[in-house]
Amino acid sequence: MTSSQLAARLAPRDRTLALLGGEATDANLRRYLHGIPGIDAVGLEQRAADLGSRSIKTTSKKLALDTTIGLIDLTTLEGADTRGKVRSLVGKALTPDAGDPDCPRVAAVCVYGDMVPHAVEALGSAHAAGTGNGIAVAAVATAFPSGRASLAVKLADTADAVAAGADEIDMVIDRGAFLSGHYGRVFDEIVAVKEACRRQDGSHAHLKVILETGELNTYDNVRRASWLAILAGGDFIKTSTGKVAPAATLPVTLSMLEVVRDWHRLTGEKIGVKPAGGIRTSKDAIKYLVTVAETVGEEWLQPHLFRFGASSLLNDVLLQRQKMTTGHYSGPDYVTID
């Protein structure tokens, strides 16, 4: 039995232990993660630039714009968030383009944990609530964005949001622990948070693991953290909180997609990817779509496997979409602010 067959046939936890060749200790994780081939930054960035230079025109562009809208986690993550702000955001999520009833809806709204009840309420029957139809509610948790709190606080944060109706939890990893080589601590925390995502009926809120790639700094770190998050049971790997620069970049996202591709080769399992922060234009979003499709395959261009964490992106896509429909350029007064 080859290692890949072994990996595919075992339950997730056992599979991880088999891959690591032992418990998820710092040493075992280090041996595994540092055995993964390195990344040459120049080559990675060149590949990302090449993918970004694809020319997506006419019918392909129309498809790309609609696809983009359907992949957006429409986000508000401010200290000043209120019920009113969240209701407004949900309104935009439900009706992105007031002038076009055929405009697709976004995938989810993403808010702080204490705003989840307002989002659920505002969505009403449009709330996906684990059904896969409708709009999901994603909550950032685990002492977002810094992650600097005790594990107990992080788990309570998570459990609260799930109990309030969050379909998805966007957790942050402990970057300090990662950078100081305490991979086991990062691993255990992800496992614990995943457990805290469990609902009473036994189902799970989907877990997106935010690596905060801007703080991990190097591509090798991003790649290792991606493997670590997947080994620990993350459903999605996400670039950034949006609070740290640089947030999502195309090369970082490409490197994460390569991990997802390799994990799929190894286990047959499909992990999602969410670039977040800094993606503001349709042009940028289309580069990401190309990168996803040409790296892991077109199948990933679905909300359960790819998301954009963004707020201002949506209106730019809508302006472009109006231009394609009407043939002339639109203006900011013709899209709504949330």
Binding site: K57, T59, K61, L63
Partner: peptide, 8 residues
């Protein structure tokens, strides 16, 4: 299919 890029 998205990957059938329209002629450019």
């Amino acid at each position: 299919n998205f990957l059938d890029y329209a002629p450019a």
